[in-house]
């Protein structure tokens, strides 16, 4: 119980953020209107994805230093879960874009960058599939994982800022905290981010333990 308190915290925060996110008062802004509530769901998905990829890179570096198989398993399950959150982020963003921008996929640098970084991590999964020998697979894929993480950072945070983008926070558009995030929204947004990050780590942790059991029974 003492070790699982964060899972209870994650569940409570998640329930709170969904209920409060859908019911609480939000500022009325032109164009955005009620779609501003997507902030509570879309942004945490990307934060969770980045945190999971970050944990994965840390474990990949640890694997290269130690050669411990557990570190490799943790790294791969973090990426697998991160990819799911990436797809959820794309889906929530597309639904929102459909109502505010009029099309689910306008040709926007931020969106394209997000899609490319997802492709990069799918390539990581394919690379793992292409290597048969276990230690070699762990080592080579760890190298690719470490190599692609800085590229993802460039893709998501540097490139969209260099060009014009419709996405909030890019290309001269104000970010969410400069005009539309009043103190009421912060009360829901920050717990939502924390909740989704904890849920992401929880899912990855479960998948990792499942992998361990599978490996031991082999």
């Amino acid at each position: 119980m003492r070790r699982n308190w964060w899972k209870i915290l994650a569940s409570l925060l998640l329930i709170y953020s969904i209920i409060a996110g859908l019911l609480l008062e939000v500022p009325r802004l032109p164009i955005l209107h009620e779609t501003i509530r997507n902030l509570y769901f879309h942004v945490p998905m990307w934060f969770t994805m980045i945190i999971l990829y970050l944990i994965s890179v840390i474990y990949s570096i640890k694997y290269l230093a130690s050669g411990d198989e557990k570190h490799d398993l943790l790294a791969v399950e973090m990426v697998n879960t991160g990819i799911i959150f990436g797809f959820l982020g794309l889906a929530t963003g597309m639904i929102w874009a459909n109502y505010t921008w009029g099309a689910p996929w306008p040709n926007d640098p931020k969106l394209n960058s997000a899609a490319i970084s997802t492709l990069m991590y799918l390539a990581y999964v394919v690379l793992r599939g292409a290597l048969d020998e276990e230690q070699k697979r762990a080592r080579i894929s760890a190298v690719y994982n470490i190599f692609s993480f800085p590229v993802m950072i460039v893709l998501l945070f540097i490139l969209p800022r260099m060009t014009d983008s419709l996405h909030p926070g890019n290309g001269g558009n104000p970010g969410f905290n400069s005009y539309d995030l009043d103190s009421g929204m912060r009360l829901v947004f920050y717990p939502a981010v924390l909740a989704w990050i904890l849920v992401g780590v929880w899912i990855a942790n479960l998948k990792y333990r499942l992998r361990l059991i599978e490996n031991n029974s082999k």
């Binding site: 960058s113 490319i116 390539a123 394919v126 070699k136 080579i140 690719y144 692609s148 590229v151 893709l155």
Partner: peptide
């Protein structure tokens, strides 16, 4: 170097390098 370690390096080279080179 990464792709050469896996055997079907032709396809792998493309899918590993294209996302990285796009930015």
């Amino acid at each position: 170097g990464i792709a050469a370690k896996a055997n079907n390096s032709g396809t792998l080279m493309a899918i590993l390098s294209f996302p990285v080179i796009i930015p």
